[in-house]
Design a protein around this nucleic acid. Sequence first.
DNA 1: ACCTGAACACCGTTCAAGT
DNA 2: ACCTGAACACCGTTCAAGT
Lengths: 179, 179
Amino acid sequence: MRTDARENRERILEVARAALGTEPAPTMAAVARAAGVGQGTLYRHFPTWQDLVLEVHRADIADLVAAAPRLLEQLPPIAALAEWLGRLADYGRLKKGLSDAMHTAMRDRLAGEGGHPVTEPIDLLVNAGRADGSIRPDVSGEDVFLLVGFLWRLDLTPDRDERSARLLRIVLDGLRADR
Amino acid sequence: MRTDARENRERILEVARAALGTEPAPTMAAVARAAGVGQGTLYRHFPTWQDLVLEVHRADIADLVAAAPRLLEQLPPIAALAEWLGRLADYGRLKKGLSDAMHTAMRDRLAGEGGHPVTEPIDLLVNAGRADGSIRPDVSGEDVFLLVGFLWRLDLTPDRDERSARLLRIVLDGLRADR
DNA sequence: ACCTGAACACCGTTCAAGT
DNA sequence: ACCTGAACACCGTTCAAGT
């Protein structure tokens, strides 16, 4: 990669990170303008808006993914899942723009057959719970990702934090095998 | 209302109903074109796309809303809620275009303070369940509407019917008070 | 009153022309 | 090799001009 290309890429990510802190869905044109590059340059580096948003949060997503196996060593599966989903909620709360990217990514995932990085840790935790009998056997990680989809729609509510915690508890209770 | 105005309104609804059977989100311009009216006429009758979609399904939504109190006479609250949500799922399955309208309606509802017609019957059923102790007390009808949001994202999956039924069972188990 | 359709202000995306 | 920015094909919405 040429030096100017790398610099442009970095500046685009910097600007996009700042923009996503302010508004949930900045336009591609606005990002290009703020970064001082042509539209074509932005599209060369990030073919879609989703690619851009996911790359902005790449490091944080990696942290989140890496946390799952560590939680599983310290807690029983269902408690680990509860803790992990809580972190996912906190994360979605901080990074406003990611919500829609997650949503559309999941939609595409359901349509096609590609994997989404955020489904992997959920699969890991859910499978552990199924293995030790604490989580009902007829549920997949993808199912859980669908069930917690409300997290991406709580942006605007005033009681967001309390509510997301409460709704997560309801989903987790529904996932338990002991009925 | 003048005769030509009424005729235009009817033709718009007819065309929109047909379009929604084919594609999930026809554009306003396409509907106007197919109905043979100007853009302004379409906007006069239906200020937003959401208004148009909800009006197309008005009669069906009314049926759905009316079913809630009847179910409550015949079944215990939580069984009535299960049955009603099942019908909502069937309904969402048949009327593709309504999904997004529901979604955005709910989003706006959360932002503003207006009520959505579909939240009313859920409120009715949930409150009945809270009253007789079968549903946990810390949950609202709006919460349940958020929890079943996955229904609007199952359009494209092959195992949609089985899956929506399974996920609904999980949510309902989570809503029970007996833990 | 009501309708028309051109016009406005956007959007994502592409691509010929430059460096 | 990479970048620029004009251009294309859209979109929802408005509004002056007609009937």
